[in-house]
Amino acid sequence: MSADGKSPQVRMTIADLSAASISLVFAGWAFHESGRWPAPEFIGGPAIVPRAVATILVVVALALAWNALRGRSDAVEKPLDATKIRRIALTLGLTAAYAVSLEPAGFLPSTFVFLVAFLHVMGATNRVSIVGFSILLTAGFHAIFDLVLKVPLPPIVWLS
């Protein structure tokens, strides 16, 4: 039994069943979409390979689900605790916010704020290190991409 009171075996079974379900949805979607494509004069139209792959996916997904239902799924090595789930969720949210803000806010401010917040989420406590590292990394990336490699990063629109 894991720390959260759930069997690791059950966790992987759920994961396998989820993967099988997602695979079946994708396969069904592929069949549905390909049904609307133009029919070829002979075998070899745009739908033949997607349908063949979708068929394989259905077979494999059913086999995976069958294995899972028979209790043959592998065990999860290290179940996640609430703290780790929270940290990963926060990271995901922060990264999404960064992706949204990158172009409107510009590379320099958005990256600096992203790094400061991210380091805080990572558990860094030394404020000088957090700010110093964020400035250095932001400036370093700016120098490498913008100045050395000549790859323009999003500018600060409201300044220019």
Partner: peptide, 22 residues
Amino acid sequence: RYLVPAIMLCSLIGSYAINNNP
């Protein structure tokens, strides 16, 4: 704690820099 943000940033900006596409 410092390496992860660096990898994350390198990945995101590296992805952006390929086509300059958000």
